[in-house]
Design a protein around this nucleic acid. Structure first.
Lengths: 349, 349
DNA sequence: ACATATTTTGTGAACGCTCTCAATTGACTT
DNA sequence: AAGTCAATTGAGAGCGTTCACAAAATATGT
């Protein structure tokens, strides 16, 4: 078997009887090519199965056709069981890749051991060798000011997912406060008068907003703060279990729980089962994440569905636009969805 | 803010007072460099923060430092709810990326719409532009003979995950038959005499092997075939529900269910709940996948844990070795784990 | 028809590396 | 001390593109 010779732009040029540069113009959709010539070149590209070599393109031009996605290793499946991982990563990748594909870009992933404290050197290495056209920062990296400043200094456009703060960035996020208000009111309308919130970490922006909105929604309904306990402070299953044990042991325990992510909602389901509480009859549960598996829990969870994939997709789209010299910076709010399944109901009695 | 000038190999060479080529030797760990010189160059690399440009490396040399991972779009989270997606992808990425990172390689993903029938052109495009050093094929692409042949013709080393068949490939897999035997015996030992198998599709290699082993294990124990019904034939939640309804409506229904993946195991949990059957008292359930969320189901599933991430990691490692001119082809069996949690128990009475 | 704009096409250089091969250095023989 | 061989270093070419131009072709105005 002879190895098929790699066809280059010169081959296409020769076959079409034009110069290298004209072919380049055609494949880049450049202006000033006679329609007839363009067509002839396109036909040859097709016939020879020509695909531009990305490395060569990068060498010659300014673009790399690469988007780098920075992800927290601790949030990958490896840590699912410890309670930190989730399929955020899966979803984010999906959103990003789909968008890249559409523009013939490619997505390269980097997993960062955030806790190791070597984030910037690690990213510097990847950025230096890949020279991506843009970088997507997902939590918790989007909140890393030092990193963001470094990228800015390098002149690499950067998109933050789940973060909004202004500046010369692409920020993509959802309306966390609105979602929390909607969820809390749903519970209030059902008749709940004591609601617990299993909150995420204090330094996580979206969680902060949700806390605030939770407080406000209860206050508006005239519910006293002690009937709206907020359990602190990470996203882990195990901690949620113990926080919940305490909450439910109170004199007049909450009849509904809002969990800041799915894993803590699962924890609520477990604790309820352990204490012989039926969900939703004895305890309503709502999650604030809605990763795909949630539909299959027993019973299926009512949840706020975050537009995770869409957010990363949007981030990619903006970075790609930017790399083409188009406008792209800005803040983009994407709609969430409130999915009512089987874990909310009016309280007993 | 002045943009930091990109430091090139020439800069390092000048700073170290050696030639370009010597620096190249040092960064590639080449032989024949005086220790003193090597050290001096390394110091300059460090000091200037030099990172080799991947594209330039690709242009000059033969390697691209890129591994391409081909994934079935239908198996991403997008299709979780329809029952096809899962976090396989997440795990596979993790395994691959971790390995790449170790060797300063990078992993690029490609999501293929398998059903669209344009697999090869899609991959040709990615392979042509990226020129990866190797390609990782995950199910169902690893079974795509046409694709495998195409890659072979291109001279691109290719690793198949969850597939073993010989030939000049890297095949990484687990002992499906052994796992099925172990699981079936576990149930038999517990006292079950009627066991249902919710099997995956017939054309999926590993599922075939599991069917076979299931049959054999029952036969060995003297269980008649009608007490070992096999429910056909995909990996979806919804279909599993209906198959299961039928199985459990039989005159002497199974007291234990083996599901070929987690989603079908969840389906068993749902159906049991609907029929008022307690798991594991009235029905034992075992899954053959063990994605991370399984631990949090109510009750937590007993399962075979597939070494998914490890398999992709191994695949990457072999491809990287190959790209360095080392040996790498071969078949590699990785160990699975049988995790007994809370969904298996002796049958009632 | 002529000069002048505009569109279209082509040429040479550059990008940052690795390859091949030649030149230099140093160590070891005899 | 000269000769041989291996270890170390360097120089030039080439990889496949795009860029900045220059050249050619065509259109426009008078």
């Amino acid at each position: 078997m002879h190895k098929p010779a790699k066809v280059t732009i010169e081959d296409v040029a020769a076959a079409a009887g034009v110069s290298r540069q004209t072919v380049s113009r055609v494949i880049n959709n450049g202006p000033n090519v006679k329609p007839a010539v363009r067509q002839r070149v396109e036909a040859m590209v097709e016939q020879l199965g020509y695909v531009p070599n990305l490395s060569a393109r990068r060498m010659g031009g300014a673009r790399s056709y690469l988007i780098l996605s920075i992800n927290d290793r601790a949030r990958t499946f490896e840590n699912w069981t410890s309670g930190r991982g989730n399929d955020w990563v899966d979803q984010m990748l999906y959103g990003g890749m789909s968008e890249c594909e559409r523009h013939n870009y490619h997505m390269v992933l980097e997993l960062i051991d955030t806790d190791a404290g070597t984030t910037i050197p690690q990213i510097a290495r990847a950025v230096g060798s890949l020279r991506p056209d843009g970088v997507i920062l997902t939590p918790p990296h989007c909140d890393n000011l030092e990193l963001v400043a470094w990228l800015e200094r390098q002149g690499i456009p950067c998109a933050r997912v789940g973060h909004y703060e202004g500046g010369n960035f692409v920020d993509v996020f959802m309306d966390d406060e609105g979602a929390m208000r909607e969820v809390t009111r749903h519970l209030l309308d059902l008749g709940h008068r004591s609601i617990g919130f299993l909150a995420g970490p204090l330094n996580y922006g979206p969680s902060q907003k949700r806390r605030k909105a939770f407080r406000e929604a209860l206050a508006e309904a005239g519910i006293p703060p002690e009937a709206g306990p907020i359990g602190a402070g990470n996203f882990y299953f195990d901690m949620a279990v113990s926080v919940l044990e305490t909450m439910l042991a109170a004199p007049s325990p909450p009849t509904a729980i809002i969990a800041d992510n799915d894993k803590m909602a699962f924890a609520a389901l477990h604790v309820a089962a352990d204490r012989g509480l039926k969900v939703p009859d004895d305890l309503s549960v709502i999650s604030f994440e809605d990763t795909p598996g949630v539909r299959f829990s027993v019973p299926p969870l009512t949840a706020i569905r975050q537009p995770t994939a869409a957010m990363v997709g949007k981030a990619c789209a903006q970075l790609i636009a930017l790399s083409k010299g188009e406008e792209g910076m800005g803040a983009f709010e994407l709609p969430y969805e409130f999915v009512v399944r089987a874990t909310t109901k009016a309280p007993r009695g």
